[in-house]
Amino acid sequence: MKLLLDWLEHRRSQWPNTTTRVAADRLAEYGVRVRPRDSGQRVLLDEFYSPRCGTLLDARIRVEAATAG
């Protein structure tokens, strides 16, 4: 399993086909109802696509990092 994760992390660092969008907006396109956050950091959806065929290879939901300042 570790080898698979190492391979995925290596490939992910090379993928130019990555999109990041607000999770509530993106999931609404699929008919999924999600309540967006009203304050604080946004919940984001990172999607990683194959550069060859456009297949969605991985999707991750994360909380936006706080900005310094």
Rank of each mutant, 00 (worst) to 15 (best):
R35A: 09
M1I: 03
F48Y: 15
R12G: 02
W15A: 15
F48A: 10
W7S: 09
R52C: 09
T18W: 04
T19P: 00
R35Y: 03
A59T: 02
D6E: 14
N17V: 00
D58G: 00
L45A: 09
A28G: 04
T55G: 04
R42E: 08
L57S: 05
R11Y: 06
L4P: 02
R35Q: 10
G31W: 04
T55N: 01
T20H: 01
D58N: 03
W15D: 13
R26P: 01
P16N: 15
G40I: 03
A68N: 01
V22W: 02
A59V: 05
R12L: 07
W7K: 01
T67Q: 08
Q41T: 14
L5M: 11
D58S: 06
P36Q: 07
R52N: 13
G31L: 05
L44G: 05
R35H: 06
W15S: 15
Q14R: 15
G40Y: 00
V63P: 03
R62C: 03
T55E: 04
A23Y: 05
Y30K: 08
W7H: 04
A65E: 15
A24E: 11
A65I: 13
E64C: 08
S39I: 01
A66Q: 15
A59M: 07
L45Y: 04
Q14D: 13
V34A: 13
A23F: 02
T67L: 15
R62F: 09
R42V: 01
L5K: 11
E9T: 08
W7Y: 08
A24T: 01
R35I: 03
L4M: 09
S13E: 12
R33K: 12
M1F: 03
L8N: 14
T20C: 14
Q14S: 14
V34D: 10
